[in-house]
Write a protein that binds this DNA or RNA. Sequence first.
DNA 1: CAGAACACGTAGACACTGTCTACGGGCGCC
DNA 2: GGCGCCCGTAGACAGTGTCTACGTGTTCTG
Lengths: 193, 193
Amino acid sequence: MTDSDTSLRDRLVDAGVELLAAEGLQALTLREIARRAGVSHGAPRRYFPTHLELLSAIARRGFTDLAERTRQALDRETGGARAQVAALAGAYLEFALERPGMYELMFRHDLLESGRLGLRETSLPLFSLLTGLVGAADPGADAPRVAGALWANLHGLAQLWRWRSLQLATGEADLATLLETVLVAHLGPGGGR
Amino acid sequence: MTDSDTSLRDRLVDAGVELLAAEGLQALTLREIARRAGVSHGAPRRYFPTHLELLSAIARRGFTDLAERTRQALDRETGGARAQVAALAGAYLEFALERPGMYELMFRHDLLESGRLGLRETSLPLFSLLTGLVGAADPGADAPRVAGALWANLHGLAQLWRWRSLQLATGEADLATLLETVLVAHLGPGGGR
DNA sequence: CAGAACACGTAGACACTGTCTACGGGCGCC
DNA sequence: GGCGCCCGTAGACAGTGTCTACGTGTTCTG
């Protein structure tokens, strides 16, 4: 029941999540994670044969957190399908802005190749959820195609905004109106609110 | 007039561009670039005080290449503003797919912070060009906002497509129709083309 | 209950990285 | 001709990820 009876595997991932939030992605060293978990630098190898697999496990934590967050946002939203798409999109952007390090890691595919299979299982459900909502919001549209385009737009919006590229390119735009612009573009001016 | 009278500075950037295309971003080591340029590992320091500055110089080369490419695409396109936006977007995506390593580097802002100022000068003109075209294609729209949203969409499209995320999420979509979907979304079904 | 097998973490070596510093050689300028 | 001074070399340093040999404590087993 003490602090140290949770398996080292979990403690490593915990330490990694903390370190990622505190110091950023480039600080997420194998040896530093081990240090924070209070073990030697060779210990993680028992559970994660390579550094990338440990990073993948940390990213997986991020994907489940994101799924949980969007689930809550959808539960709170009582409006129609269009409003639920907006809620999902808003939750996505909030996540990207509040946990930039984690968001960065989650989409650094060059760091996650080994855990690719597991990651698909965590990120694909979110996309099919979006597809379903899009189909419900606009029954006439080709839902997978529109959902794909919208997803790409959300992702790009999150990235460019985090880099302050959109801020200095568009001048004074704020993120909320940009998001609204994106939603209107892909779903039409629809009566949703 | 021999091969070696071009300054070492340029030779380093050349070697970096080649190495990036041949082996990918993670192979773009300071020491390996120096090896390919035929100098010792300490030599680059004369021209690039830090590794990031060398990477920034390589990325700058990419930005000028991209600008050149879009310029040519626009010259070839004789249609209206709407068609020119499509040409610009197509050139952008082609660049991202044909030179994935360079594209990756160009948007790894964590690797380019030092040369940020110079990079702004090379990427901002492209955006204002897009803004102008959008304004011409749809005079009624808030051009900077629409251009920003469209830019984000292009960027996200390029990223997700490179990672094969869109392919396996949407099933069978091809990139050209996805791009058309995006253009229709932001500019309307417009009579362009 | 004694002994063997094993899970688990330690410690050191290795090749590699980016940065820093001292050094030398070849050029032009007064 | 001799004095500087670019410009590149070479080695050291701390840090990284991976690999391997080594204990130590626990847990099954006969």
